[in-house]
């Protein structure tokens, strides 16, 4: 545990010693504001809630989260520091979890910095703060699921750009799996339960229900399961890659 925390601390600090952290936070917060006000008509729709904010976040995450995750392993492999890290008394699971946690905390900080919008709607009206809190939770879970995918992809390559592009593509497929775009690939040849399974993997469906304020245990379990699955895959890939 203390090893995981030590790695997590180092990684969080690593984010903030490069300009990446500040660029990311500024862009994330600015785009959140822009999409919520411009596309979401936060003011004009005359409702005291943050639906316009959370409605666009999955799309912002699609671009920005792979950028946070891409360096996690690719950078270590390229710089050779992976050898130093993995010859310290650290298990692969501890390293994977520590790094993931750091990226999640970092994304959480960026998400928390959208708080002025929460203040704004509270100043202008009487929003249901329970729903807003649930939305923040849903958004954080969604970011975690994206990050676990991004971290896994980052472990597959030493090239950060490849990690970014592939990561974004995989996340996109998971987002879209509830829509015709992905489902039509399976319809026609796959049995109905497979299509149903693919459909149930859709991030957007699970996210939407949480953001509506309905915290269903199944949605929470879905996101936690996705994270567990990809973190486990991440451990396997790091171990396998080391052997070759």
């Amino acid at each position: 545990m203390s090893t995981t925390l030590a790695i997590c601390r180092r990684e969080v600090r690593a984010y903030f010693t490069t300009p990446l952290a500040y660029v990311f936070i500024v862009v994330f917060v600015a785009l959140n504001g822009a999409t919520a006000f411009y596309f979401g008509n936060l003011f004009d729709r005359g409702q005291a809630d943050l639906q316009p904010l959370f409605g666009f976040q999955p799309w912002l995450y699609l671009i920005l989260v792979p950028a946070v995750a891409m360096r996690l392993w690719a950078e270590e492999r390229k710089a050779g520091t992976l050898e130093m890290l993995m010859t310290l008394p650290v298990s692969t699971t501890e390293a994977v979890f520590g790094k993931f946690l750091a990226a999640w905390i970092f994304t959480g900080i960026a998400l928390a910095l959208t708080f002025p919008m929460w203040i704004t709607v509270n100043y202008l009206g009487n929003p249901d703060n329970g729903v807003i809190l649930a939305s923040y939770l849903g958004s954080l879970l969604m970011a975690g699921a994206y990050l676990s995918i991004g971290g896994f992809v980052s472990a597959l390559t030493r090239n950060q750009v490849i990690a970014f592009v592939i990561g974004a593509a995989v996340i996109f497929l998971f987002m879209m799996s509830g829509l015709e775009l992905v489902l039509s690939v399976f319809q026609g040849w796959a049995p109905g339960f497979v299509v149903g399974l693919v459909q149930s993997l859709s991030f957007l469906t699970h996210y939407d229900s949480i953001v509506q304020g309905v915290i269903d245990l199944r949605d929470l379990i879905f996101f936690l399961a996705i994270m567990t699955l990809f973190l486990f895959a991440n451990v396997v890939v790091v171990d396998l890659k080391r052997g070759s």
Binding site: S2, R13, A14, T81, L88
Partner: peptide, 27 residues
């Protein structure tokens, strides 16, 4: 104690931070 070939290190850290990290991991 191991010095890998080429002494790869986290370049964005200071030696003090790096040694602190290694100490943390080594308990």
């Amino acid at each position: 104690g191991y010095l890998p070939e080429g002494a790869p290190l986290y370049e964005d850290m200071t030696p003090l931070e790096l040694l602190g990290f290694v100490a943390d991991v080594r308990g």
